[in-house]
Design a protein around this nucleic acid. Structure first.
Lengths: 142, 142
DNA sequence: CTTTCTGCAACAAACATTGCTACAGATGCC
DNA sequence: GGCATCTGTAGCAATGTTTGTTGCAGAAAG
């Protein structure tokens, strides 16, 4: 996979699980090492998935929307990524082998994606936050 | 995933498992519905992985290098794709949370990739070829 | 009504992917 | 030998995706 949205999303959620007060996109961006708008884009996706809430105005920012122990990493993945399955191709429709293979490959990809997501579903943001708390102390800052 | 190399690779190997004689890249390309050079690029990767052999000259072309029942779909995936794990990002090195999370996300991704590949490893090219033979007849052509 | 935020559109730069041309080199056949 | 048929690979254009950035509308708090 080439994009880093999942890694950033997990990073941000772990950060928010740590935090007491709402975090601004500028603060988060300095931890993630990117631009605040990039953070807002990813948090927009997490918001649509019901994982975080954003509040405008002074003292506003983002909060995690529910207990970190209820946020599975598969939820995070699906919030920021369309699919983990390999893409299908477009075989010559006149080739009987090609027609069949296309369907089979799609099925194979879906099964593998399911296994991928099941692995992610075995861990929650809280699991990561616990490790971080232990090793990095409880400071939420940078 | 955005690229279709895995789908094409599986398609081609199923085709080769069917075929009696070597197949030229032009023939394969007409089944896959793409350009012969694209086929040769992907078959180059499969060749480096020891899954197919290519022969130059008249009457040449590509053959499957071993029994289709010994070619796991995970072998095919690894031959044409670097990794199935989500990419990592580059957090601010001064942020203790970011430093920790980066490592954790990498581990999580590797575990999920392992599950993904294990799912693919449960099927071989022969499994697909068998279904195709049943449903599409034994004609290798288009 | 000013300041501090998010939300979003619009754009540029960088990169990945695919299709294509062109050609070097291997190989079989006359 | 000379020719036709292949692979192998470099190079290039077109397209699409991802990321970083600017700019601005609108919500909310004091």
């Amino acid at each position: 996979m080439t994009n880093v949205r999942f890694a950033v999303a997990v990073h941000v959620l772990t950060l928010l699980a740590h935090a007491q007060a709402p975090c601004t996109s500028a603060f988060i961006a300095s931890s993630v090492n990117t631009h605040p708008v990039v953070v807002r884009r990813i948090l927009g996706a997490l918001q649509r998935a019901g994982l975080v809430t954003g509040q405008t105005g002074p003292g506003g920012g983002f909060r995690i929307a529910k207990a970190a122990s209820k946020v599975k990493l598969s939820d995070v993945f699906l919030a920021v990524e369309d699919s983990a399955a390999p893409a299908s191709h477009h075989p010559n429709p006149q080739c009987p082998v090609g027609r069949q293979v296309k369907g089979l490959v799609t099925d194979v990809g879906k099964r593998a994606e399911k296994a991928f997501l099941a692995s992610l579903a075995g861990q929650t943001v809280e699991d990561l936050a616990r490790v971080v708390r232990k090793k990095a102390g409880s400071a939420a800052s940078c």
